[in-house]
Design a protein around this nucleic acid. Structure first.
Ligand SMILES: [Zn+2]
Ligand SMILES: [Zn+2]
Ligand SMILES: [Zn+2]
Ligand SMILES: [Zn+2]
Lengths: 129, 129
DNA sequence: CAAAGAAGTGTAATGATATAACGTATGTTT
DNA sequence: AAACATACGTTATATCATTACACTTCTTTG
């Protein structure tokens, strides 16, 4: 059987990310969890690694930050729309484009294992509509 | 009038990236250009910034690395297929999927200004075909 | 051409992100 | 209970990127 229960540190990190709703860096998380007894970056990074392997969080490469997954049980790749004005990050799926990208590089014999899709711009709220 | 001529440092960095053909980190570049007189990270980062603004190079977010643009005069967004076995990075265009992504987030009122699209996997050569 | 402004330079220090190494503890399987 | 896998805390270090400052070079324009 798989799916161990999350450990205390893992749960703390996941809960903090989920409560935040936004993307946090490892050091943001460390600062916010010092009150819970976390003291060193490596404790946060270890929790983040496990949570990532289990698909409970995503890493936002262009921000060096992490966010709780809001979809769970991914069939498809995750994309992110990142507002550079307010920092909001919205997760989205893009099944048609995903297939398009996969086949675009597949023509050259490339086997895609993971996609990083991060759109930077301005969210509806910040555009003032 | 725009389009200044590239300075010595900028040309050194661009030439090194173009000659390499692969993605290099700022510190890779610094090491390889010490013989040309470069001494400090900031010299490389400054050149990289200008080159990026002019569209002569791209930053690969998921590698903290930089690569020479092989397309020039981008109408479209750039995507990258990155082989995790050999490190090869291939730039590609994806006009249809690009439009799909843009409209996917556009439904929520998001205005896309820049796309990071990085596909990790295995290249044809490494797959042994 | 000379003055003014914009862009670039080198040096030094620092900040921000991430991992390695070590020995110990805890939980699960047999 | 022994063996194994996973996680722990601590310390140190590696890697990536920027700030600050004083000075120089290039470009524009009066
Ligand atoms: Zn997700
Ligand atoms: Zn916004
Ligand atoms: Zn390009
Ligand atoms: Zn390869």
């Amino acid at each position: 059987m798989s799916e161990r229960k999350l450990t205390r540190n893992q749960q703390l990190v996941l809960d903090r990310l989920a409560a935040s709703g936004s993307a946090l860096t490892a050091y943001d998380l460390l600062d916010q969890l010092r009150g819970e007894g976390l003291r060193a970056p490596v404790q946060v990074y270890r929790a983040l690694e496990t949570l990532g392997q289990r698909g409970l969080i995503h890493r936002i490469e262009s921000m060096n930050a992490f966010i709780a997954c809001c979809a769970h049980d991914h069939q498809a790749a995750a994309g992110f729309a990142i507002c550079d004005d307010c920092g909001e990050v919205a997760e989205f799926a893009f099944p048609a484009s995903e297939e398009g990208l996969r086949s675009e590089v597949g023509k050259a014999g490339f086997e895609t294992r993971h996609m990083t899709v991060e759109l930077h711009g301005r969210c509806a709220a910040c555009a003032g509509r």
